[in-house]
Amino acid sequence: MRKWMPDRAKMEKSGFLTILCVFGMFILLLGGTQNAASLPYRLQRVLLHSAQRMFLPGTLYEDSEIKKPAATWITEQVFFWFPLGEYLESRSIYEGNVEDEETIARILESQADDGHLVEVTGDGTAEVPVQETVENIVPPTGQPVLDMSIEKLRDFDYLLSNFYIVDSTTMIGPEQLNPDDLLNRSMKIDPGTGEPKILIFHTHSQEEFADSIPGDPSTSIVGIGEYLTQLLNAKGIPTIHDVGVYDIINGQLDRSNAYENAEASIRPILEANPSIEVVIDLHRDGVAEGTHLVTEIGGKPTAKIMYFNGLSRTRANGDIDYLYNPYIQDNLAFSLQMQIASETLYPGFARRIYLRGYRYNLHLMPKSLLIEAGAQTNTVEEMRNAMEVLAETLHHVLIG
């Protein structure tokens, strides 16, 4: 349960206004100018008038000057003598992105829970066993259904409706979804140095599948990430896998701070490995129990995937400054190039890119990617098959 925390900004403002009122009353009572000389008399009238309105309303004569309650009248007088207070009060109303601590906590909690079912599973601390068999090549299948010519992609409505799902809480325009810009940003990396180039991790390590074995991380999203790591290494792309657990607190599933916990651990890994250029947060989605996200590729049942972008912007709050991400356009470029490659090589493998309002740690690196692979209704086999296809797609985009 989240504890209530006092809003420091509101407390400071209230204290400031209280001081203004005290000084305002002092001036009102003592005078100091020709106008102030009459203020004690006017104040007395207002106070008596308010008392009469409360206790003897039938005898009240409404003086046009003092129809307002005493507190309102005194406040107006203070603002007359101290206009700075009124300026600060009015300015706070119009400042953008000014949110109290409770609102910030609520937004971060929404970010943590987006699109996932809450499941209580094992603690995920066991080592992930190394898989013995690594398949390297999944040949392209079928023909793309969508027209992916640059001329067609320049049609914003076509691009948006065929390649994206925009959550109702956020919005995006053609200035951000400019295909000439997004497709011309190079995602290529040089794997020849032998140093790590890709980092894979899991903000939600406890996500499992239809036939996962409770307590066995090799059958959870962590095991699926380990298989993807092996596939990429087999393709000559040095990849490391972080198996840290960020959604278990005191032995209980708790995703409320999972993204913040993950960032705190991922940043030191990036600092220790400056050669890393690509960061992938691998998830599995949460869907209705009757939904099965599966297709057939190379004769194998294969879980579908979805690329996911955070825009750090909501309709209600506009740009969210405390979720600032300088790499939003690079993130969008990476996901769009992956989407087009997926549709070109393996039509039907990738669902449409999902755009949501928060950040999801995509600010860690320009080439950051959040992937929702399959869902809780997929089998481990379907997920492993999906990683073989995903590894081919990553190789195509990053190496060529």
Results as ranks from 00 to 15, higher is better:
residue 70 A to T: 11
residue 70 A to F: 06
residue 71 A to S: 14
residue 71 A to G: 12
residue 72 T to I: 10
residue 73 W to C: 04
residue 74 I to S: 03
residue 74 I to H: 08
residue 74 I to Q: 03
residue 74 I to R: 03
residue 76 E to C: 06
residue 76 E to H: 12
residue 77 Q to K: 15
residue 77 Q to P: 02
residue 77 Q to H: 08
residue 77 Q to S: 11
residue 78 V to R: 05
residue 78 V to P: 02
residue 78 V to H: 04
residue 78 V to Y: 00
residue 79 F to W: 11
residue 80 F to V: 09
residue 80 F to A: 14
residue 80 F to S: 12
residue 81 W to S: 13
residue 82 F to I: 14
residue 82 F to A: 10
residue 83 P to Y: 04
residue 84 L to Y: 08
residue 84 L to Q: 06
residue 84 L to K: 09
residue 85 G to I: 02
residue 86 E to Y: 15
residue 87 Y to T: 11
residue 87 Y to P: 01
residue 88 L to R: 08
residue 88 L to W: 10
residue 88 L to S: 02
residue 90 S to D: 13
residue 90 S to V: 13
residue 91 R to N: 13
residue 91 R to V: 12
residue 91 R to F: 08
residue 92 S to G: 15
residue 92 S to R: 13
residue 93 I to R: 12
residue 93 I to A: 10
residue 93 I to T: 11
residue 94 Y to K: 09
residue 94 Y to F: 12
residue 95 E to Y: 04
residue 95 E to R: 11
residue 95 E to W: 09
residue 95 E to C: 09
residue 97 N to C: 07
residue 99 E to S: 11
residue 99 E to M: 15
residue 100 D to W: 07
residue 100 D to S: 06
residue 101 E to V: 11
residue 102 E to R: 10
residue 102 E to W: 15
residue 102 E to L: 07
residue 103 T to M: 07
residue 103 T to A: 06
residue 103 T to W: 03
residue 104 I to H: 09
residue 104 I to A: 10
residue 104 I to R: 15
residue 104 I to V: 14
residue 105 A to M: 08
residue 105 A to H: 05
residue 106 R to Q: 14
residue 106 R to Y: 09
residue 107 I to Y: 02
residue 107 I to R: 03
residue 107 I to Q: 08
residue 107 I to F: 05
residue 108 L to A: 06
residue 108 L to H: 13
residue 108 L to D: 10
residue 108 L to M: 12
residue 108 L to N: 12
residue 109 E to L: 11
residue 110 S to R: 15
residue 110 S to V: 09
residue 111 Q to S: 08
residue 111 Q to I: 03
residue 113 D to S: 07
residue 113 D to L: 14
residue 113 D to H: 12
residue 113 D to I: 07
residue 114 D to M: 11
residue 114 D to N: 15
residue 115 G to N: 01
residue 115 G to W: 02
residue 115 G to Q: 04
residue 116 H to T: 13
residue 116 H to L: 09
residue 116 H to G: 08
residue 116 H to F: 09
residue 117 L to H: 02
residue 118 V to Y: 08
residue 118 V to G: 10
residue 118 V to C: 06
residue 120 V to S: 07
residue 120 V to H: 09
residue 120 V to G: 06
residue 121 T to N: 06
residue 121 T to P: 00
residue 121 T to Q: 05
residue 121 T to H: 05
residue 121 T to S: 05
residue 122 G to S: 04
residue 122 G to F: 04
residue 122 G to W: 03
residue 123 D to Q: 04
residue 123 D to K: 01
residue 124 G to S: 08
residue 124 G to Q: 10
residue 125 T to K: 10
residue 125 T to V: 11
residue 126 A to M: 06
residue 127 E to W: 02
residue 127 E to K: 12
residue 128 V to A: 02
residue 128 V to E: 03
residue 128 V to S: 01
residue 130 V to K: 10
residue 131 Q to E: 07
residue 131 Q to I: 01
residue 131 Q to N: 06
residue 132 E to W: 03
residue 132 E to L: 06
residue 134 V to Q: 04
residue 134 V to T: 05
residue 135 E to D: 00
residue 135 E to F: 06
residue 136 N to M: 08
residue 136 N to H: 04
residue 136 N to Y: 03
residue 137 I to W: 00
residue 137 I to G: 00
residue 138 V to K: 00
residue 138 V to W: 00
residue 139 P to K: 00
residue 139 P to G: 01
residue 140 P to C: 00
residue 140 P to M: 01
residue 140 P to L: 00
